[in-house]
Amino acid sequence: MAHKNNTALLVIGGSAGSLAVVLKIIPLLEKDWNLSVIIIFHRKASEETTLAEMLSTRTAFNVKEADDKDELVPGTIYLAPPDYHVLIEREQVITLDDSEKVNFSRPSIDVTFESAAQIYGNKLTCILLSGANADGVEGLKIARSRGAFIIVQDPACAEIPYMPKEAVNNVAIDFLLTDQNFEVLKNILNR
């Protein structure tokens, strides 16, 4: 029987320097966990779309670049496509959105944290990683106010500390992810 995870949706947001951390997080996910994952990376539209393939070699979850109106299925990682924001509908379906950039970013981490928080509330876990821009911080505040579990990479461990530092300074954090406590993260996600 599948686990009944407290977290139904995990949203990971990262910018410069975050890929290496994601590559350490996604091997923790186990096939029978009852949660879906959305990853928002800041990346350019011109970049090749081989990222999903690369990620899929590191995890038991399925990995796909999100298409419009994809259903959020447990055991799947949805990668935000370049040049689209990712929104979540009440029916747990993804809507892609190509409206104006937010924090100079599309996809924007803020947009997905906020949208996911409205639908998932305390069934949402957010992780904000390394980056050079404050995207994600406002979204974490909103997610926090809706009961989401908030995880931020320890700025001291981040390749580019600006983004997690802004988060730590402005939002109450539930768990600080360091280079040493990935096993604890696994337990949190599996509760």
């Binding site: 929104l87 979540i88 509908e89 009440r90 809507t95 959105d97 409206s99 947009v111 409205q118 639908i119």
Partner: peptide, 9 residues
């Protein structure tokens, strides 16, 4: 229309 998008806009 997409409710998520409308609410946001």
């Amino acid at each position: 229309y997409s409710k998520a998008s409308l609410k946001r806009r």
